[in-house]
């Protein structure tokens, strides 16, 4: 104990100076997504719908960009016929260590927990939209209405996950209910959580095995190995949000008129690619 209690108090306060930033995480749940394996089949999306009680919003609201997918497979196209290059990238909540959304929420409905997860407390949410506005990855979804399931579809709802009401923001949780269950099971068996105990629904379902989930604090875990890959990158790394989702670059064929793609981050001064379609 230091002699100066005021100093001690200041030190203690410093720890809590910033919301939710712990010195040491109990775990650092991390997902590695290998873009070279991903073929864009969207099995992960359906798995998420089933696991997390995501509502179906219907055609009209889909057109208003209000679809409730917590994970989506984005597709980017470059080039013109016959030299078309397509890239898929599954995007889910990046569980940023320095999350802009956490900064925005006035009531701590979103905060950082000791597992390094970016947690959303539905009950606390007042719906200021700030978190979603600040999110660079557009992964937060809002309950525009109280969504209904046509009977008897509601019988499928997962009792481990709450059904959200109107006016609440929601997002990918890394299947926190599965993380809880995995930790509880390990505790019941009197051991530490080991690699492979916990798998979120998307990672579980992926037919191509593009997803790997685990604890980055565990140096032996598969994600720790994969995170060392030289193909690794994180989405918009220069924003310094420190995402917990690590992507592995897709390997593209040489030549064939592909745009030269370097390992650098967001292109300063790159002219926008002319090709592509849609609008």
């Amino acid at each position: 104990m230091s002699g100066n209690p005021i100093k001690a108090i200041i030190e203690r306060l410093k720890e809590f100076r910033r919301p939710g930033y712990y010195k040491n995480y109990d775990h650092k749940w991390t997902m590695v997504i290998d873009l070279d394996r991903c073929n864009g089949c969207e099995a992960c999306v359906t798995a998420c719908y089933a696991e997390n009680n995501l509502p179906v919003v219907g055609k009209e609201d889909c057109g208003n960009s209000r679809v409730m997918n917590w994970i989506r497979v984005e597709r980017y196209v470059a080039g013109e016929y016959p030299d078309v290059k397509v890239k898929f990238i599954p995007i889910l909540c990046q569980q940023c260590s320095k999350a802009p959304c956490e900064l925005g929420c006035p009531v701590y409905a979103t905060y950082h927990n000791q597992d390094g997860l970016n947690v959303q407390v539905y009950n606390r949410c007042v719906g200021t939209f700030t978190c979603a506005t600040y999110c660079p990855y557009d992964v937060r979804r809002f309950n525009w209405f109280t969504y209904k399931w046509d009977a008897p579809l509601e019988q499928q709802l997962n009792p481990d996950v709450t059904v959200r009401e109107m006016g609440v923001m929601e997002k990918c949780t890394f299947c926190i209910q599965r993380i809880r269950a995995g930790k509880d099971k390990a505790k019941d068996e009197g051991r530490a959580v080991k690699d492979g105990d916990i798998t979120p629904a998307c990672a579980q379902s992926c037919p191509a095995g593009a997803f790997t989930f685990g604890d980055l604090n565990d140096p032996e875990s598969r994600v720790s190995m994969l995170a060392k890959s030289r193909r690794r990158f994180r989405l918009f790394e220069e924003l310094n949000t420190e995402p917990s989702v690590i992507y592995l670059k897709k390997v593209f064929a040489d030549g064939g008129g592909n745009p030269p793609v370097g390992g650098h981050t967001l292109a300063g001064g790159h002219p926008p690619v002319k090709e592509g379609h849609g609008g």
Binding site: S65, R66, V67, F129, A132, F142, W144, F145, T146, M166
Partner: peptide, 15 residues
């Protein structure tokens, strides 16, 4: 009564 869905807001444009 209905929810914020009666506005024209959508996911990137929440404000």
């Amino acid at each position: 009564y209905r929810g914020q869905g009666v506005t024209g807001l959508n996911v990137p444009v929440l404000w």
